[in-house]
Nucleic acid binder design. Structure first.
Lengths: 155, 155, 155, 155
DNA sequence: TTTT
DNA sequence: TTTT
C-alpha cells in the first residue's frame, strides 16, 4: 500500500536521441529530454506557446524499449515519478540539484518520418514547430552532474 | 485545446508553514515544500521508506486558500504542472535551475493535531493561527534564486 | 477548493464520427466512443490485446473542437471525470445506468489519413488493427437511454 | 509498453463495508462503492455539492489490504482502470452493463472516528472489526449481475 | 522540513 | 450508501 502519491504524466516530443548506457552494476539506463508544449495567455492577453523541458530517465526493460524505439522527435506519453538528486559541486562547493522524471510506463505515439521518405509514417511537418534551442539535457553538463550511479537506482 | 500534457499529482505532507507574499504587480503567491513518502526495496531487498521533497507554488485564489488553510504538517492532494525556472547565479556565474510544481487544484485532507493535545483529531484552531517561522522557500535564498517576479506568472 | 478527486485519463482511438447536437437550452453537446487498448496476460500466460470502450461526452467549446477536428479513427488524449446517469426504463420498469466520461481537456494526437491519400499524414495501417465490433455508443440505443437533457449539464 | 492509457484517480469515502470473497479459482476479490464529492454551479449559478458513486473492485494482495483496513466511511485515494462488463439479463433478455474501477494502487487516508467516541481522531480498533452489514455490491444483485467469475480476472 |  |  502506497503511503503517498508522486505521479507525473507527460505527453510531448523527445529533444534528442536518448543516451543509453549501463551502470557499473549492469543495469541499463536511458535518459533524454522531453518537451511539453503549452498554450497560455501572456500579460497582454495573447495566446503564447510555451515549451517546458523535462529530464527523463528509465531503467532496465523500459530503457531497452527506449533504446530500440525512441529517437529525436518521437512523440511519447509517459507516466513516472519526480525525483530530485543533489550533490556538492566540486568547483564552487555549492549544493546542486537536478530534478528528473523516473519513467514507469511509456506509450509511443509517433515518430517523425525518415529524411526524404515519401510513403507512410508521420509527416515531417508534425515536428517542424518543435524548436530545439536549449534542450534540458544540456544542463547536466553545465552542472557537472556526477551522473547516475547504482545508488540512484531505486530497486 | 491543449497541445501537450504536463500534469503532476502529489499526495503528501507540508514541510513548513507556507510563505505567502505579493508580486510587485499585486498577485498573491504562496510557496511551500511537500513531502511524498514512498516505500521501495533497497539493494538488500528490504523495504525502505523514502521521502521526496517538492517545491510547490500557487497564485491568486489558490494562494489565498493556502494562506488560510495550509500549514506545516497539513496533508494535501494537489494537481499541477512542472515548471523549471533558470537564472544566472551572480556569484559563480553559473546557470541555476529550480524545478517547481505550479498548483492547479488542491484538496485539503488533514492536519496534525495540536502540540500536546490529548484527544487527537483535527483541531479547527490549527488553521486559524498563521505563523511564518521558517518558510519552505528558504532554500531558494541559499542559491540566490532571484525569486518569482511578475514575469514568472503564467497568466 | 475541491472536496474530492474524480479524474480520468484516456488515450485511444475514436470508434465512430462523433454525434453533435444541441440541448433545448442551446448548449452544444458532442458524444462519441473511445477505445483504449491494453495488453494483459490471459490464464495461459499469453499476452492478449484487450479493447475497452468508453462513452465520452463534451459540452460547449470542447464540443465545438470535437465537431471540427475529431472523427472516426482519431487518436486522442483526454482528461475528464466519471459520471453515471440513471433513469427508469419505460418498457421493463428497471433502473438503467450509463457511465460516461465528461471531457475537461482534450489533446488531438493523430487522424487516419484520407482515403487514398499518398503523401504525409498517418499511415492507414495504424488504424487497421482497430476493430469496430460493438462500439459503446451502440449501447445507448439498446438501453433506451433518454439522452442528455439540460438537466444533465453540470454547469 | 502500453498501447493506450486507461487511468482513473479517485479520492473519496467508502459507502459501505467492502464485500470480500474468493472466486472458484481461489483469487480473493474485494468490491465496494466510493463516493467522490464535487462542487459545481447549478443552473441558478449557486454552488451545489454533488456526489458521484463509483463501483470499485480489487484482487489478490490489494483485496487483502482492503479486507483488513478499509471500511464504511474510510477516506481513500485510488488509482485504477475503467472496465465495463456486460451480460444478458435472464428475465428481460436485455444486455446489461456494469462499469467498474479495477484498483491498481490504494492509499488509505483516514477513517471516521468510532460511533459515540468523544476524543475524535482515528481509532485503531476501527480497522480490527470487520462487519459485513450491507455489502456495497448489493446493487449488482438488483440487476442480476452474474458476478465476477475467474474469466473476469484480468491476469 | 513532513508524516506514520 | 460516504464525507464535511
Amino acid at each position: 500500500m502506497a503511503k503517498g502519491v508522486n505521479k507525473v504524466l507527460l505527453l510531448g516530443n523527445v529533444g534528442k536521441d536518448p543516451e543509453v548506457r549501463s551502470t557499473p552494476g549492469g543495469t541499463l539506463v536511458a535518459s533524454f529530454s522531453l518537451a511539453t508544449a503549452d498554450r497560455q495567455k501572456d500579460q497582454q492577453g495573447n495566446w503564447q506557446d510555451k515549451t517546458e523541458w523535462h529530464n527523463l530517465v528509465a531503467f532496465s526493460r523500459t530503457a531497452e524499449i527506449i533504446r530500440d524505439y525512441v529517437k529525436k522527435g518521437s512523440q511519447l506519453y509517459i507516466e513516472g515519478k519526480i525525483q530530485t538528486r543533489s550533490w556538492d559541486d566540486k568547483e564552487s562547493g555549492q549544493k546542486k540539484y537536478r530534478t528528473e522524471i523516473l519513467i514507469n510506463e511509456l506509450t509511443l505515439l509517433g515518430k517523425p518520418s525518415e529524411g526524404g521518405s515519401s510513403g507512410g509514417g508521420y509527416s515531417k511537418s508534425n515536428t517542424a514547430s518543435f524548436d530545439q534551442r536549449t534542450p534540458a539535457s544540456e544542463a547536466a553538463t553545465t552542472y557537472a552532474d556526477p551522473g547516475i550511479t547504482d545508488d540512484d537506482i531505486p530497486f
